[in-house]
């Protein structure tokens, strides 16, 4: 097991370097001279030349990437905002807690709603409940989060006046953004739980359990659910990672002060270092979450544990 964990953690390093390379290349290809962006349009030729020399912008591409990587690893320095002139990392760290909170709320909603709906759908396959749930899940998957967000604002803030349409400081303000963000995950978890349950219910050992006279509730909740949940756990983890990325649109609709809104505002202001820093940060968070999920998966699935004994 330890060997497996070490291997998986070590594998994270080339992936993160690869991600950093992609992000850096994109930033490099982005039109616009960083020196002019930082110094402003009125900067003199010599000031620009000095800046380029000081920041190493006159060096070859790979050297620049090496420097970028070195600074990122040793000092957590992934560039400086063109607009606020503050380090990108500072900007991101100031906004990340809100994003993390939003994604956590959303995944909790998704699990609390998705699991029971999926299990019930599978037990009562082809019933009215199953049909309605599956159609709703499909609608949930098809709804753009930015539209769902606007509809929720329209219903709960404009017409009913129950909940605020923006901000993230109170519990009430967090409800709408979390709901909007969770919709896709609720749908996916419901569908996955249902199909996973259906597959397990047809397995031989379930027939054995039934034929030895086991109560139906024990068969479903003890025998079937335990195995059916394995892929669902993976999905939940993957969803949590995607929620961190999905939060970009949600945050900009509900004015949640998170990494997503920071990125959208930076896109509008052409503040590319912040955009790319945000991409790097979220991708890194996504990879770390996926790693944790894989480790958890190995822990709950004895078949994987057995391979690495």
């Amino acid at each position: 097991m330890v060997k497996y964990i070490v291997r998986r953690v070590l594998f994270l390093i080339p992936v993160l370097v690869g991600v950093a390379f992609c992000v850096f290349t994109l930033l490099y290809l982005t039109p616009g001279d960083p020196a002019k962006m930082v110094l402003g349009d009125l900067a003199t030729e010599s000031a620009i030349r000095d800046f380029r020399e000081k920041e190493g912008l006159d060096k070859p591409f790979l050297v620049q990437f090496g420097n970028y990587l070195y600074k990122a690893v040793t000092q957590g320095d992934i560039g400086r905002s063109y607009v606020t002139k503050r380090p990108v990392m500072t900007e991101i760290m100031a906004t990340f807690p809100a994003t993390l909170k939003l994604a956590t709320f959303a995944i909790v909603i998704a699990i609390v709603l998705g699991l029971p709906c999926g299990i019930l759908s599978a037990i009562k396959q082809y019933s009215a409940f199953d049909t309605v749930t599956m159609i709703l899940a499909m609608i949930g998957l098809s709804m753009p989060v930015f539209w769902l967000g606007l509809l929720l604002i329209l219903l709960f803030s404009v017409y009913l006046r129950w909940l605020p349409s923006s901000g993230f400081d109170t519990f009430k303000a967090m409800i709408l953004p979390s709901l909007a963000l969770s919709a896709q995950s609720v749908s996916m978890i419901t569908r996955m739980t249902r199909s996973s349950m259906l597959e397990v219910i047809r397995a031989d050992y379930i027939r054995t359990a039934r034929s030895k006279g086991q109560k139906e509730s024990v068969v479903i909740w003890v025998h079937a659910l335990h195995n059916a949940l394995i892929p669902v756990v993976t999905l939940c983890g993957l969803q949590f990672g995607s929620l961190l990325a999905g939060a970009i649109l949600t945050e900009s609709i509900f004015a949640v002060p998170g990494v997503g809104r920071l990125m959208v505002e930076s896109i509008k202001a052409r503040d590319y270092p912040v955009v790319q820093g945000g991409v790097l940060f979220v991708a890194a968070a996504f990879s770390v979450v996926n790693l944790l999920v894989d480790l958890l998966y190995a822990y709950i699935d004895p078949r994987i544990k057995a391979q690495y004994r």
Partner: peptide
Amino acid sequence: MRVMDVLLSIPQTLLAIAIAAALG
């Protein structure tokens, strides 16, 4: 596949945003 693994570790929406931001 290792290159694909790296790209897959960036969520698709995020990757699209990064590329679109670079391209304009």
